[in-house]
Nucleic acid binder design. Structure first.
Lengths: 166, 166
DNA sequence: CTAGATGCAAACGTTTTGCACCCCG
DNA sequence: CGGGGTGCAAAACGTTTGCATCTAG
């Protein structure tokens, strides 16, 4: 995420905290910056070591407490990709309706959006007498290239997460 | 689940264990019976007290180890309905492709199937270069009746889980 | 000045693991 | 008799909480 977008995010966070009469402290700013600087999913525990460097230290308790607030603000979402692992996904700011495909072979996570499925989810929900407030699809799949060719060329040297181009 | 279906399930479990050269012990039979006797989602910890009665005691370690095996067999599936809670769902035996709608108001869980979404999920997955092995949709919704009428007539005295009639 | 925020350490609930003993085939 | 299976208790793990202290406004 470029500096300009990051500044916008920091402003959004600050506005949220202010609207609740809460402060935007050094620790909270450091956390928001770290979380939204790149688009990786993360566990709270992952953040702890990254915030030990330099003078930007933030305690474990503050990390957990701040994440809760960011989820409440809607800027951050909790997702689960299996195995009881609790991850947080900062990308709902850019793609409010994205879903996740996880490769069982290489564990790569691919984010995708699909307007049609979105509409159908709304229909189903309404038909059952509810108004949708949040929707999540998780698909597990095996890699075709790997199975057919014996190697997973798509992912060689790639990141562990990519976004589907449409 | 009626006795006849339960017997079939027990047979299926026994066959799975046998196929892996594992034994179908008193503890494993008690667990399978308890899990598939009704269609409730459960946490492993929930099972412990229920297996203390009479002579059917099963230790915590055995519960966790057996659940792992049942998931491996495909008879049981792990689901997550939010909040990092890890639940197990025995209903994929009857409804291999069902999904979950969770009411944010009353926490009721509604299971539903939809063939169209199923097909679209397969398409998306293939388009991205994968073959789907497992699909899960979780929708969170607020109760229309509760919001419009101030009460949630649908659920009064009902179970905490129902299955959508189609 | 003071309500909110932080850091620490203890507590917590869930899940996993090491190990001695048990039992089925 | 041997390889699984079990139970126990300890350990591991992620998360929450109580409390004394600090700090932003």
């Amino acid at each position: 995420m470029d500096q300009q977008s990051l500044n916008a995010v920091l402003g959004q966070a600050q506005a949220f905290f202010a609207s609740k009469g809460l402060r935007f402290t050094r620790q909270r700013e450091a956390l928001v910056t770290l979380i939204f600087r790149n688009d990786d999913h993360f566990r709270p525990e992952d953040l702890l070591p990254k915030l030990r460097k330099k003078d930007g230290a933030v305690s474990r308790a503050t990390i957990y407490r701040t994440i809760l607030l960011l989820v409440e603000s809607g800027m951050l979402r909790e997702i689960s990709l299996g195995g009881g692992e609790r991850l947080y996904d900062p990308n709902f700011l850019k793609s409010p309706n994205h879903n996740h495909l996880v490769c069982v072979d290489c564990k790569e996570i691919i984010e995708f959006e699909d307007l049609n499925i979105d509409v159908m989810q709304n229909c189903i929900t309404r038909r059952l007498g509810f108004s949708p407030t949040q929707k999540a699809i998780r698909i597990e799949g095996s890699c075709d290239r790997l199975r057919l060719l014996g190697s997973c060329a798509n992912f060689k040297g790639g990141k562990s997460r990519r976004t589907a181009r449409r």
